[in-house]
Design a protein around this nucleic acid. Structure first.
Lengths: 191, 191
DNA sequence: GTCTATAGGATGATAGAC
DNA sequence: GTCTATCATCCTATAGAC
């Protein structure tokens, strides 16, 4: 892997673990096995490197979701698959994590990257929900847009509650609960 | 207000805005109008001060929730009131914010404070949901525990999505969506 | 491309005077 | 109780040699 690649990947991990403010160029260099000069040769500084790392995390979120939402099967089945797909719950969401930091939210590029990922996710969920509604898998009166927001929020909030608890239990219970409210028997599905 | 009071309140605000890592003793002192010596006279250091501030935020969360959940009216009405109560959505949740920081999660006292607030909230929501289920306000088959987790997660996730978007819209849509899934006409209620 | 040297400021305290 | 002085370390670069 190239030095630039290792720097981006190290930044991605550190942002995930410690957030933007808690991630120093020094720590990035050490994890990447690169010197100061090397880092500043490839990137103008911490903000540019962080943006590259966040773009990668946002792309990953999208790919992970699309693997289920765009896969085979009915709408309910695909949404269930996505909700129950394997996650490192206690690490939190690498994208949602960024939304807490004022330096990230205050930067147009980073902010747009994070928000863009969530806008896409909500839109994609809404499409699948609408497809299921039209196909009779969900009630005819289903509010696809509101329900998509609920699902995205349950995932993000589930991460928060799980980290607070030091256990994946709140995440899993919230995911099970939302499937229940959608009328999908959560016991009847496999990840 | 006493100096110790001002220090705690300043810490509370700074933790809310910038998180634990992003909050320095120096910034706390300046906001509180206190000197270094004064701060270290009243508190042993940043961790002790932060713990006092977090306990206060956790207590506030509890009081805000109980004002609605323990108020008059039916179960659905009280839960709706809590969900639609006025919030500074874009500031995020002062308690949920803390769950992201590894230094907070790694400290037994702080971690227990944050988790305790969410455990209490979920338990309280479950009680009210169960009350409503027995009273016929909700379906007899309602999973009160799972639904309580959904509601807590929607609030926390709503904050995350709203901060990412720079707008309260995702929060409001998720809250409206969950009321809809609960069979409560969200248009029929007032904050 | 990568290295070392250097820098001004912040961080999180401690010591001791008042 | 509050103040100032001091401290070792980290932060985020920049400069210039190799």
């Amino acid at each position: 892997m190239s030095t630039a690649e290792r720097l981006i990947e190290s930044t991605r991990e550190l942002l995930w673990e410690r957030g933007y403010t808690g991630t120093s160029p020094r720590a990035i260099q050490q994890r990447a096995g690169a010197g100061q000069g090397s880092m500043y040769h490839h990137f103008s500084g911490k903000p540019e490197l962080a943006l590259a790392a966040m773009r990668r995390s946002a792309e990953q979120l999208r790919a992970d979701a699309e693997a289920w939402l765009g896969g085979p099967g009915g709408a309910a089945e695909r949404i269930t698959g996505y909700l129950l797909s394997e996650r490192e719950v206690l690490r939190g969401c690498p994208v949602g994590r960024m939304a807490q930091d004022p330096e990230v939210v205050g930067d147009p590029g980073m902010s747009e990257t994070v928000d863009g990922a969530f806008r896409w996710l909500r839109g994609r969920l809404e499409e699948v929900l609408e497809e299921g509604r039209r196909g009779g898998e969900f009630p005819a009166g289903l509010d696809a847009s509101g329900t998509a927001a609920v699902i995205a929020a349950v995932l993000q909030g589930g991460y928060v509650l799980a980290r607070a608890a030091g256990s994946a239990e709140p995440f899993e219970r919230a995911v099970g609960g939302v499937l229940d409210l959608l009328g999908i028997p959560s016991a009847a599905v496999a990840a």
